[in-house]
Simulated assay, not measured.
Amino acid sequence: MTSVKQFQVTFDCANPERVARFWCEVLGYVVPPPPEGFATWDEFNRAQPAEDQGAAFACVDPTGVGPRLFFQRVPEGKAVKNRVHLDVRVATGLVGEQRIAALEAEGTRLEALGAVRVQLLVADDKNESCLAMQDVEGNEFCLD
């Protein structure tokens, strides 16, 4: 029988720390402690070779339930729509105008952090309403 595996979600990006700190605010995640022997992540970063400084950053669920998010610098910019995206559950159990109001309120909060609103997708016969957005580097996600 196959066991359940832990996993992390990895983002390719230009500025790992900026994107990680955005997602910390979105999800209530935190930056993990720096590696042993370093008082801060800045100290750890300065100890790396110049080409590796700022190349990666991570954030974690403080409760230990959600997956670790890892952000790695890549040389190329985002060119096409994500094949995988996160759905951030902010209106679970809500329907109609209550759901839209919850989506809009969270969308407004995230826009203040640098997110971009893409489109409100209104409920139809198969799906509840959701709000499509982009993070600070253009990665798509939905408020659901």
Rank of each mutant, 00 (worst) to 15 (best):
V118L: 11
E111I: 09
E140I: 08
R18D: 15
R109E: 06
D125Q: 15
L110G: 03
A132R: 15
M1P: 11
A14F: 09
D124G: 01
P62M: 08
V26F: 00
E76N: 13
V90D: 00
N139M: 07
V65F: 13
D125H: 13
A47I: 08
D144P: 12
A123L: 04
C13H: 09
E51A: 07
K81M: 14
V4M: 08
E111K: 08
Q72L: 13
V26R: 06
S3W: 11
P49Y: 01
D61F: 03
T10V: 14
I100Y: 01
T10I: 13
A115N: 03
A101R: 11
T108H: 14
G28K: 11
G64N: 06
A50P: 10
W41M: 01
P67A: 10
E137I: 02
R83M: 13
L120S: 05
W41I: 08
Q48A: 06
A55W: 08
A14N: 11
R109Q: 07
W41K: 01
V90N: 00
C24M: 14
P67W: 10
D125K: 15
V60S: 13
A132C: 12
M133Q: 12
A115R: 02
L103Q: 02
C24W: 07
K126S: 06
D52C: 12
N139Y: 06
P49L: 00
Q134C: 03
C142M: 03
G37A: 07
F7G: 05
R109M: 02
R89Y: 09
R18W: 04
K78C: 05
Q53M: 02
A79W: 04
E25N: 12
P32T: 07
G77T: 10
F7Y: 14
G64Q: 02
G96W: 01
R21F: 02
V26N: 01
P16T: 12
F11Y: 14
E51M: 09
G28R: 04
V65R: 15
T63L: 13
F44V: 00
M1T: 05
E36S: 10
V136W: 00
N15H: 12
V26C: 02
G96Y: 04
N139R: 09
L86R: 13
V122Y: 09
L94H: 06
V116T: 15
D12M: 14
R73D: 09
A47M: 08
W41T: 03
V31H: 14
V4W: 05
R21H: 12
A14P: 05
D144G: 11
M133W: 06
N45R: 11
E43A: 09
G66Y: 01
Q8I: 06
R68K: 15
A79C: 06
A112C: 04
F38V: 09
